[in-house]
Design a protein around this nucleic acid. Structure first.
Lengths: 114, 114
DNA sequence: CAGTATCCAAATAGATACTG
DNA sequence: CAGTATCTATTTGGATACTG
């Protein structure tokens, strides 16, 4: 990477970093991940009840997105009525320490006066 | 947090978490922070050259935003022509380990096949 | 219970041109 | 060198109503 004279000015790490922050930066994603992290597998309405302020549509889309990103799994229990459990994949669980640090950082630097 | 019977269903940590991820989730912010972290203080055009694909306007707005969030400082050197150096505040520098972990996590779980 | 379907508003990002 | 001004496009988020 050093001194090959290429004309791009961008860091090679920019894209992986953006892929990660693009997920965490969606309005509800970090909250959903944190909720699943702390409150275990949850059904659709249980999540909704814990999130407060989220609409069906937005929750549904966010869960879809997290599923596609490979952070969440949707487990359909064929029952009557149907039950669906959402939980974290290993990739999702590996986010835990990062989320904790983000929280700590937020409390240290973002909490008051701004 | 345990058993106070409040009717809100939301986690108390949701807001601080969102404040943090709202910053990191802006398209260019993490890249700008990483660039300042690795390539020290930089002038406007030096940043632009390293970012590749960013327009003047977007860079300018992003730097403003990071400055308001208290992560970046703008240091004007009265010269002719004027020089402006952008660098990280302590709050910005404290983000380094988190960014590194995010990068690691991205390489482990997001890099291929998706 | 677990969602979809519509329609709409707001926030973000980008292209291009111009300025002190 | 270091930006601002416009104007436009795209992406998100939200309200509301309906369905298997």
């Amino acid at each position: 990477m050093t001194g090959h004279g290429g004309p791009t000015g961008a860091h090679a790490e920019s894209e992986p970093l953006r892929r990660a922050t693009a997920i965490l930066g969606k309005k509800w994603h970090p909250v959903l991940l944190y909720t699943l992290l702390t409150d275990g597998p949850l059904g659709f309405n249980d999540m909704k009840g814990r999130i407060d302020g989220i609409s069906d549509k937005v929750l549904s889309e966010a869960l879809d997105d997290l599923q596609e990103a490979g952070l969440v799994v949707r487990d359909v229990v064929e029952d009557k009525p149907v039950r669906v459990n959402y939980s974290l994949t290993p990739a999702g669980r590996d986010l835990e320490p990062i989320i904790e640090e983000l929280l700590e950082w937020s409390h240290e630097h973002l909490t008051e006066s701004r």
